[in-house]
Design a binder for these strands. Structure first.
Lengths: 205, 205
DNA sequence: GTCTATAAGAAGATAGAC
DNA sequence: GTCTATCTTCTTATAGAC
């Protein structure tokens, strides 16, 4: 078994819950099932373990958006997928996004890590804002622009539409990160939100 | 000057940026302008300093909502204030909320502290969700219910309206906490959002 | 690569003079 | 109430055997 990989897996779980400083090399070793000094055969020191996690986070992002149900990085493909845009299709898009962000382990753990460490490290702050604000907004703006051009959506500022669609999803996500038991409640709110969003913006047929 | 109070003021600034564990009693003492051992004449230990901050946070919340421009805790009063609800009034309400949350020092520092520490302490997680999700949503739901009953807003689920109004405000707030230099951009998005919100829900006169 | 033993240093807290 | 000196404990990291 690949110990080097197991170390960053277990370390990520711990860091995402307690933050860098409150996780001791001993905790990581214990989670892996070895003694602390053995860690140093795989990584130079504790900071290198953290850096290795960060590298994985950066690499993983493209892969993640790519497997997200929506294509994620080519908006024209997705515009095709959602060509017959309907309330049901919108709901599915929103729920897919929400549930993927929430349930994918790597996404969830990285997000919690970024949340905890964002004010101590400006690079992490930048990654957070890009992954959970700018990138989703840019993507959905492009998508909604197409819908507006197609006459499927009413005329409006696509970026504002994107924010109105996405911000509730993001907000509910942060609630579920804190309180996993509130997922059902969040899902109901999410569906009602998208239902209302559709009423507001879908052009009558 | 009241050293006991200065300690928690300076400690809050430090905790909100670095989290509990990465702030050393020595840092706090230095910020106050005394030596570390002197802290222990005012507080039993480091944890007691943190607890004192938390107490202040809990006490402060009512006071804060009370001075928020909107009355905050009596929705009927606010419904009167915003009786002539118009796009301008809505924009002002949203901007007030946003700018108060963002610029009030105690609000901002407490929010950052809660953000950093939320996964280590379930009490903090509960306070966060209450202050930045449930309470604002409940309040705005009540307000919008009144507007709907008055015929000022279209018929719709008031809670969903509240979420659609508030979630973008909250989301932009988290962006500005990470990147204060993005405040102007956020304010423009906020205004455009409320403009669009008004188009969606204000009943034609 | 993993272990035991241990060094080196950091951080929280106390003792006791002023 | 503040200081200097110091203790104790915790944490990271290394040395060296297996």
């Amino acid at each position: 078994m690949n110990t080097k990989k197991r170390i960053i897996e277990e370390a990520l779980i711990l860091f995402s819950e307690k933050g860098y400083s409150d996780v001791y090399v001993n905790d990581i070793a214990k989670a892996v099932g070895i003694k602390a000094p053995s860690l140093y055969k795989h990584y130079k020191n504790k900071q290198e373990i953290f850096n290795a996690i960060l590298e994985e986070l950066k690499e993983g992002y493209v892969k993640h958006t790519a497997t997200m149900g929506i294509a994620g990085n080519d908006v024209n493909i997705d515009a095709g997928i959602y060509a017959d845009i309907s309330e049901e299709a919108l709901v599915e898009m929103g729920k897919n996004l929400f549930l993927y962000f929430l349930h994918d382990n790597q996404m969830r753990l990285f997000r919690k890590l970024l949340t905890i460490e964002q004010f101590r490290d400006s690079e992490l702050a930048a990654i957070y804002s890009k992954q959970y604000f700018d990138a989703p907004l840019d993507y959905q703006s492009e998508l909604f622009k197409i819908f507006i051009a197609n006459g499927k959506f009413k005329q409006a500022d696509a970026k504002i539409l994107a924010m109105q669609f996405y911000a509730p999803i993001y907000t509910l996500l942060t609630i579920c990160d804190r309180h996993p038991e509130r997922e059902q409640e969040a899902l109901k709110l999410l569906e009602a939100h998208i239902h209302q969003f559709n009423i507001n913006y879908a052009e009558e047929k």
